[in-house]
Simulated scan of single mutants.
Amino acid sequence: MDCSGCALKVEGAVEQINGAEDIQVNYKTQTLEFRLNEATTPRSAVEEKISGLGYGVAALA
Results as ranks from 00 to 15, higher is better:
D2C: 07
D2Y: 03
C3M: 00
S4L: 11
S4D: 14
S4C: 11
G5A: 12
G5K: 13
G5T: 11
G5E: 04
C6A: 07
A7S: 02
A7M: 04
L8C: 07
L8Y: 11
K9R: 10
K9A: 05
K9F: 04
E11S: 15
E11H: 09
E11W: 10
G12Y: 06
G12E: 00
A13N: 01
A13P: 03
A13L: 03
V14T: 08
V14Q: 02
E15S: 13
E15Q: 15
Q16D: 02
I17L: 02
I17P: 07
N18M: 10
N18T: 12
N18W: 08
N18R: 14
A20K: 03
E21K: 11
E21M: 09
E21W: 08
E21D: 13
D22S: 09
D22P: 02
D22C: 08
I23Y: 06
I23T: 10
I23S: 04
Q24C: 09
Q24P: 06
Q24S: 15
Q24M: 09
V25W: 14
V25S: 13
V25C: 08
V25Q: 13
N26T: 10
N26H: 12
N26L: 04
Y27Q: 03
Y27S: 03
K28A: 12
K28W: 12
K28C: 10
K28G: 05
K28F: 12
T29M: 09
T29F: 12
T29G: 05
Q30N: 09
Q30D: 11
Q30I: 08
T31E: 14
T31I: 13
T31R: 15
T31C: 13
L32M: 08
L32Y: 07
L32W: 05
L32V: 08
E33N: 12
F34T: 00
F34L: 03
R35H: 14
R35S: 14
L36M: 04
L36P: 00
L36Y: 02
N37W: 01
N37V: 08
N37F: 07
E38F: 11
T40P: 11
T40G: 14
T40N: 14
T41N: 06
T41V: 07
T41S: 08
T41Y: 03
T41L: 01
R43V: 08
R43S: 12
S44W: 09
S44D: 12
S44K: 15
S44C: 10
S44N: 15
A45S: 13
V46Q: 05
E47D: 10
E47T: 06
E48Y: 09
E48K: 12
E48I: 10
K49N: 02
K49A: 05
I50V: 05
I50M: 00
S51M: 00
S51Q: 08
S51W: 01
G52A: 04
G52K: 02
G52T: 00
L53G: 02
Y55P: 04
Y55D: 01
Y55W: 02
G56K: 09
G56E: 11
G56R: 04
A58H: 07
A58Y: 07
A59Q: 14
A59F: 15
L60C: 06
L60F: 10
A61G: 09
A61N: 13
